[in-house]
């Protein structure tokens, strides 16, 4: 996403800094191990877990993820820097993603973007002074039937008009959706054995292809 300027005269974080990934976060990451044939493939799920828990992916977090996945920190950074979704610097509690695809622009998307920027006094990738919102744009949110659209947190706001923006941003629940959550994807700790074998659950589960592959690759 963003270029990370580093001060080469001092380390990015102190060598003796206490770990910032808690055991719970590490356990969540380990939950994904059996789903993939290599540890590196767990990187994207791991980065999602870390960003959800810590707000952004710092240099120290990248190093600790690398250790957990048995890869080099530069490989983590390589991946992090490619994707727009990961923040390497602290962001606000909610991220506003404005769409600027052709459908949205044709229906006044630019005015909505301007309204958000003006209302919050932020620039692209900026965060409001109170730390509530960060703002970014994206090329298409696949919500063209509801253009112009605005994604706040998890919720897609449809057919947004510039004059609706202040009201929209004042709503505390504007980033949540009512969809029921799955406990298979991101809450492994409390999960017992499901009736049909736990899909992707922990190292004990007998997953079919992936696990045998891991063995194969380690032996090779």
């Amino acid at each position: 996403m963003a270029w990370i300027p580093l001060d080469r005269n001092k380390p990015a974080f102190p060598k003796d800094a206490p770990p910032i990934l808690t055991e719970a976060v590490r356990e969540k990451i380990r939950f994904f191990f059996s789903r993939y044939a290599t540890r590196r493939a767990v990187l994207l799920p791991a980065l999602h877990v870390v960003q959800d828990a810590l707000g952004h992916v710092s240099m120290q977090a990248m190093t600790e993820i690398a250790e957990l996945l048995e890869i080099h920190p530069s490989e983590v950074m390589d991946t992090v820097s490619f994707y727009t979704h990961f923040w390497t610097h602290p962001k606000g509690k909610k991220v506003i993603v404005a769409c600027r695809s052709i459908s949205c622009e044709a229906l006044g998307g630019q005015k909505v973007i301007d309204a958000v920027k003006q209302h919050l006094h932020v620039r692209e990738h900026g965060t409001t002074a109170d730390g509530t919102y960060s703002f970014m744009t994206e090329e298409c949110l696949a919500g063209c039937d509801h253009a112009p659209c605005l994604l706040i947190g998890e919720r897609m706001h449809k057919q947004v008009k510039p004059e609706d923006v202040p009201k929209l941003l004042a709503d505390a629940g504007n980033d949540r959706i009512a969809a029921p959550r799955s406990d298979l994807f991101d809450a492994p700790a409390a999960k017992g054995g499901a009736s049909n074998g736990r899909p992707g659950g922990g190292s004990s589960a007998e997953t079919v292809g992936a696990t045998s592959d891991i063995r194969e690759m380690r032996e090779a």
Partner: peptide, 18 residues
């Protein structure tokens, strides 16, 4: 960016597993 489809689909996968 597919938050709703993700939760809907994951729920459906859970149901199918069960």
């Amino acid at each position: 960016e597919f938050h709703e489809p993700f939760h809907v689909l994951q729920r459906a996968v859970d149901e199918a597993y069960a």
